[in-house]
Simulated assay, not measured.
Amino acid sequence: MTDLLPGPALDRLVSDDLPTRLWNDSADPDELRRSIALGAVGATCNPVIALAVVRRHLGRWSERIREIASEDASATDADIAWQVVEELSIEGAGQLEPAFEASGGRDGRLSIQTDPRLHRDSAALVDQAVRFAGLAPNVIVKIPATAVGIAAMEEATFRGVSINATVSFTVAQAVAAAEAIERGLDRRAAEGLPEHEFGSVVTIMGGRLDDWLKHTTKRDRVLVDPGILEWAGVAALKKAYSIFQARAFRSRVLSAAFRNHFQWSELQGGDLVVSPPFDWQLRIAENRLPVVDRIDVPVDPAIVEELLRRVPDFARAYDEHGLSLDEFDSFGASVITLRQFLEAGAELEALVREVILEP
């Protein structure tokens, strides 16, 4: 199914006959414009993405950073960095507004991530989520699928915030996040609060799960059949999707952190979101990978069985009850990803400081 096809690149990466939606894993305005032309109806922003965008368009953002600093002498480097993240997100939200209106709010969403420094404070996460939700009508707020974050998701949903669960790698985290969103929605209904389309999504960072399992097998000197670790994230995503469908959760699964094209092609046909970086979209288009319904095609049972038998952290990631709520924070992929988000935030602050102090 993955043989290269002759002829020009695909014009679009979606099929009107399938419910699968494409989002762009960046808020870079130029990339997002081109991704929308390929069929994208959503995008995301976080400290890693914002840092990359500012570096790529340093001339524009250097001028804006100096303007912000001159407008408010009390603003810290962190304050200015997060204002850049917000402005970048608002710009992306504007580009997606037509898709938001056309879908009644289900699509056309711009995800903005809560400050990773708040990951231990549920109330602070909720307060920031509520504020971010007011930046534009189609903003969706990313909250980490940690023990603290799960509680924040419920409360933020109750307070009217659309959620994108992030820092999420396992079926257990995905189900816990979806259940938290359901509780928040049910609380709204019980209080007679207005109902609307939240468009909430629950991310599984499939490629980062693959990365972690490759690390653990190398660390533990475990040899498995070559290539099977490329299927781990896909297997977890398909398992989570089947649970979401069976329980009629009002949120959708989102596939992120691409490491191979299976994380796009094997999920086509599902009522879910695939969110590859723009370069992955180009590669998929250039190789003319077919957009065909494969969501109900299971991962080879022999691959799943070997992963379950030989890779303990895959078993924990694949089993709905493989991790307790308190274990979400200490799962290896969660620790690594939170560190990277924190480091990117610090790098963005440092870049702001360099721009302001530049002679």
Rank of each mutant, 00 (worst) to 15 (best):
D279I: 15
S255T: 12
G227D: 12
K218N: 10
V234K: 00
Q281W: 12
E182A: 14
E191W: 10
A174I: 12
R283P: 04
D293G: 10
H261I: 11
P290R: 07
R252Y: 01
A256H: 10
A176T: 05
R208K: 10
R294C: 06
R183V: 08
L267T: 14
K239M: 13
A246T: 04
R250F: 14
D225G: 08
V273H: 02
E197I: 12
E306N: 15
E230C: 11
A285P: 07
S200C: 06
L209G: 00
A177S: 14
P301V: 12
G192Q: 09
G269Q: 06
S275G: 15
T203S: 10
R294L: 13
A180H: 00
I181S: 08
L193Q: 09
V304P: 03
K239L: 10
A174R: 05
T217P: 00
N260T: 13
V299W: 02
I243K: 08
R208W: 04
V304Y: 05
T217N: 03
A189C: 08
E197L: 10
G227K: 05
K214Y: 07
A180E: 02
R188P: 00
W231N: 00
Y241L: 08
S275Y: 07
R188G: 02
E286M: 10
V224P: 01
G227Y: 04
I243E: 09
F244H: 01
D279G: 06
R250K: 11
V253G: 03
L267M: 11
V234A: 00
F278H: 09
D300R: 04
D300Q: 11
I303Y: 05
L209I: 08
F258T: 10
P226S: 15
G233V: 09
T216Y: 02
F198P: 00
L193I: 10
A232F: 07
L267D: 03
L213P: 00
V222K: 03
R247I: 08
R183S: 15
I284N: 00
